[in-house]
Design a protein around this nucleic acid. Structure first.
Length: 254
DNA sequence: GGCAATGATTGAAA
DNA sequence: TTTCAATCATTGCC
């Protein structure tokens, strides 16, 4: 009675095992040879491709699949090994008991108990295997999904647009949500990429203003030239920009 | 291969 | 929630 109660109180006995099994099945590690795995990989690839380009997605996808199938292979050979070892050990113990039965009476219940103990031992080992396999898959997935690993530099035009905004708003380089959306559209990047860029730019500029001085001068001059061109073309009527600031900027520079 | 530049992430602070 | 500051991971130049 004690042992039964103990077993029941030891949390759910195989709830964790079921969780592991479900996960391995979902990831395509323990399922049928092909199909489930590629589905999971495709889902992961789709999740990873949210950012931007995604043209070289198939290469990464196949890389992910290759690594997953490696994990899968190791998992299966290990599992098979344990099963074989379990069977061998069980028959070995059975033989011993059979031999012992010549010298002492051995009840079927005792044999059953022995087999149960052996199976429990081996299934706990299998559980460890499943757990470490799950961990390996999780690590693989997190690496695959980590956007830092497939970072691409923005193209020159995008960087120029962002820098232009930054240096022409140097006193308050915090674009509004609308401004971010517009910049994102112009640069063909996402709004969060714009936010990241400004976050990085602000902190790096602040940390080393001297290093960015040349760049700042260049963009200030360019902005001034643009402002001068706009005013010389007499397009004040359809220009929503504040004429005061533009005028003062162009006056002070040129 | 070493190194600086750069985009992304993370946790704390505002 | 947004921003800051530190850090990670990759890119690209030498």
């Amino acid at each position: 009675v004690l042992s039964i109660r103990g077993a029941q109180e030891e949390e759910p006995p195989d709830a964790q095992l079921m969780r592991l099994d479900n996960m391995l099945l979902a990831e395509g590690v323990s399922g049928p040879e092909k199909g489930g795995g590629s589905a999971a990989a495709a889902a992961a690839a789709a999740a990873a491709g949210g950012g931007g380009a995604g043209a070289d997605n198939s290469a990464e996808h196949s890389d992910y699949r290759a690594k997953l199938s490696q994990i899968r292979q190791i998992y299966h050979t290990e599992l098979e090994k344990y099963e074989q070892a379990c069977n061998e050990f069980t028959t070995h113990v059975m033989n011993l008991l059979r031999e012992q039965s010549r010298t002492r009476p051995i009840s079927p219940k005792e044999i059953e108990r022995m087999v149960g103990i052996i199976h429990r031992k081996f299934s706990s080992i299998q559980m460890q295997l499943k757990q470490s396999t799950c961990e390996a898959v999780m690590i693989l997935r997190s690496r695959f999904l980590d956007a830092r690993r497939k970072r691409r530099n923005f193209n020159k035009q995008a960087t120029e647009i962002l820098n232009e905004y930054f240096y022409s708003h140097l006193s308050n380089p915090y674009p509004s949500e609308e401004a971010k959306e517009e910049l994102a559209k112009k640069c063909s990047i996402t709004v969060s990429q714009v936010s990241n860029w400004f976050g990085n730019k602000r902190i790096r500029y602040k940390k080393n203003i001297g290093k960015f001085q040349e760049e700042a001068n260049m963009y200030a001059a360019r902005t001034a030239v643009n402002a001068a061109n706009v005013s010389s073309h007499g397009s004040q009527a359809n220009s929503p920009a504040t004429p005061n600031s533009a005028a003062s900027l162009s006056a002070s520079v040129g």
